[in-house]
C-alpha cells in the first residue's frame, strides 16, 4: 500500500485514461503527476475538472506532450496558457462536460451504474446526439459512466490501510475518482497507524485505494 511516487504510477500504459483530482490547484496531485511525466506514458486521455494551471502539475504533463485528449468542465482560465496553446495549435482534443455530469459520470462508473438520465445540458450543444427521455414531465439526457485505468488523487491524511480524509475544498473530485479507476494512487501529507483515524470521519474507505504515497515518509526516505 505505502509506496513512492514513482512506484505509484509504475506500469501506466500508453493510451491510458487517467483521472487527475483537483479544482484548479486545490487538490491537484502535483508530485504524482511529476512521477507520471518521469514514467513516460504517452497518448493519454486525462479526465479532470480543469486543464491545468500555470506550468506545474497537469499543465506540466500537457506541456510534456503526453496527452492526446482532455475531458473536463472548465479548461479556459486565466492561467491555462499551456492548454490554450495546444488547443489552438490543434494538438489536443477536448471534450467539455458540465461539471455535475462529469462528477456523476464518475460516480456512476464507481457505483456500477450502466448509465443515467440527467436534466443538465438538455437543449444545449453539449447534449447533441445524446438520447433524450421525458420522465414525469421533465426532459433528461442519457449520460454514460466515465471510468479510468488510473486515478491520481491528493488527500490530507491516510492510515496504513488506505482510509482517507481530505482537507477543506481540496476534496472536490477525489472521492469519486477513487471509486472509478482500476488503479487508484493517492498522495497524502502524512500517514497514521491503523485505528488513528476516527472511523466516523473517513471520507474515502480503504477499499477504493490501491497505492498511498505519504509525503512525510518520502521526506524521511522511509518509502523507497
Amino acid at each position: 500500500m505505502l509506496t513512492s511516487y514513482d512506484d505509484a504510477v509504475a506500469g501506466t500504459a500508453d493510451g491510458s485514461t487517467v483521472m487527475v483530482g483537483g479544482f484548479g490547484m486545490a487538490g491537484m496531485p502535483v508530485e504524482l503527476i511529476d512521477a507520471l511525466i518521469r514514467q513516460g506514458a504517452k497518448d493519454l486521455t486525462i479526465v479532470s475538472n480543469n486543464a491545468g494551471n500555470g506550468d506545474t502539475g497537469l499543465a506540466a504533463l500537457l506541456a510534456a506532450g503526453r496527452v492526446r485528449k482532455v475531458v473536463c468542465s472548465f479548461p479556459r482560465q486565466v492561467d491555462s496558457w499551456v492548454f490554450d496553446g495546444l488547443y489552438r495549435a490543434g494538438e489536443i482534443e477536448l471534450e467539455v462536460v458540465p461539471q455535475g455530469n462529469l462528477a456523476e459520470r464518475m460516480r456512476a462508473a464507481g457505483a456500477g451504474i450502466g448509465a443515467f438520465y440527467s436534466p443538465t445540458g438538455v437543449g444545449t450543444p453539449l447534449a447533441e446526439g445524446k438520447e433524450v427521455r421525458e420522465i414525469d414531465g421533465r426532459t433528461y439526457v442519457l449520460e454514460m459512466p466515465i471510468r479510468a485505468d488510473l486515478a491520481l488523487v491528493k488527500a490530507h491524511v491516510a492510515d496504513r490501510l488506505g482510509n482517507l480524509v481530505y482537507r477543506r475544498t481540496a476534496r472536490n473530485f477525489g472521492p469519486v475518482m477513487c471509486t472509478a479507476a482500476t488503479t487508484v494512487a493517492v498522495q497524502v501529507d502524512r500517514v497514521v497507524e491503523v485505528g488513528e483515524l476516527d472511523p466516523e470521519s473517513i471520507v474515502t474507505p480503504a477499499i477504493f485505494v490501491d497505492r498511498i504515497v505519504p509525503a512525510d515518509l518520502v521526506a524521511e526516505e522511509e518509502v523507497a
Binding site: 479556459r76 488547443y87 477536448l94 467539455v96 458540465p98 461539471q99 455530469n101 445540458g121 453539449l126
Partner: peptide, 9 residues
C-alpha cells in the same frame, strides 16, 4: 475555447 464549469447544472 469552450468552458462550461457548473453553469449548466
Amino acid at each position: 475555447i469552450p468552458a462550461v464549469g457548473g453553469a449548466m447544472d
